[in-house]
Design a protein around this nucleic acid. Sequence first.
DNA 1: TTTGATAATGATAACCGTTATCATTATTGT
DNA 2: ACAATAATGATAACGGTTATCATTATCAAA
Lengths: 154, 154
Amino acid sequence: MKDVTEKLKEYIRRKNLRWTGQRQTIVEQLLRTRQHLTTDELFRKVQKQDPSIGYATVARTLHFLVDAGFCDQVDISDGSMRYEVVWGHEHHDHLICSVCGKFIEIFSPELEKIQAKLVRQHGFIETTHKLQIFGTCIDCQKNLCRTENKPLAK
Amino acid sequence: MKDVTEKLKEYIRRKNLRWTGQRQTIVEQLLRTRQHLTTDELFRKVQKQDPSIGYATVARTLHFLVDAGFCDQVDISDGSMRYEVVWGHEHHDHLICSVCGKFIEIFSPELEKIQAKLVRQHGFIETTHKLQIFGTCIDCQKNLCRTENKPLAK
DNA sequence: TTTGATAATGATAACCGTTATCATTATTGT
DNA sequence: ACAATAATGATAACGGTTATCATTATCAAA
Ligand SMILES: [Mn+2]
Ligand SMILES: [Mn+2]
Ligand SMILES: [Zn+2]
Ligand SMILES: [Zn+2]
């Protein structure tokens, strides 16, 4: 946490930007909360800590954090972009429960290897990829889901 | 083509819907043209064949065709949804060139098998998945790209 | 073939997440 | 403390999609 702030401050110095209390608050909330938040979800959490912070600042800070490499933008086609912290996390893909909205993070070196092979076979140069698998999570199948996430729209 | 129309008419009868000249025209254009079109791109093509057809009809017809299983909606996070014909095509995923906007369709039973294994391991029940790999296609690497597709916005 | 119930259409307004604008405030190197 | 300028907050604008509604077209039944 302290470490994260320092890394961000380094990035800010490099880019001639400025560290602000708003950015501090927003990063704190991002780290404190479950990932894959929409701008609006994060905005509500930020407002509880500091009601003076505006929506635009949250939106702009999320762009800033994506540029800095601290966050990734995740688009699951449910109407708005989501953001997750990636510093300190391995690359991963997602199982997404259509009932409770839960994200299950998956990583398989085996899978990545085959993807890389396919890319190579087409002479393609990959920059990024995303794999999203939609369905029903094990908890929702048993009606035992305790997730407080709102179900995904659609 | 004649076959496709018949299958759609069957679906329409089952659902108590109606076959119209507009739907005929729109389906013709979808089959005649490259896939992964936005609503607006399809609208422009449709208008050349019949300028009296409105944008809303194209948009609504695309939804209808998705419901019917004739089209899939493809979201590559470039600002608008795209649609592709899937009847008569195997399931596939996409390599997407960020330079020229080209879609390269890939299918690997090996890959699908590993995905299925991961899903099983989490007790997840899959309904759909999508894998999108972004980068630069082989033609664009050599500046030989002949694709008339507009580069993807970003 | 006419008819009646109602699905579909076209024009356009509304919607909604995101981005741009702009006057004001805050940060940072000097 | 100061000057340069990045960041902020309120809100308008933007753009793709969807809703509205009066009118027209479809199609099964008579
Ligand atoms: Mn994740
Ligand atoms: Mn395709
Ligand atoms: Zn669930
Ligand atoms: Zn290309």
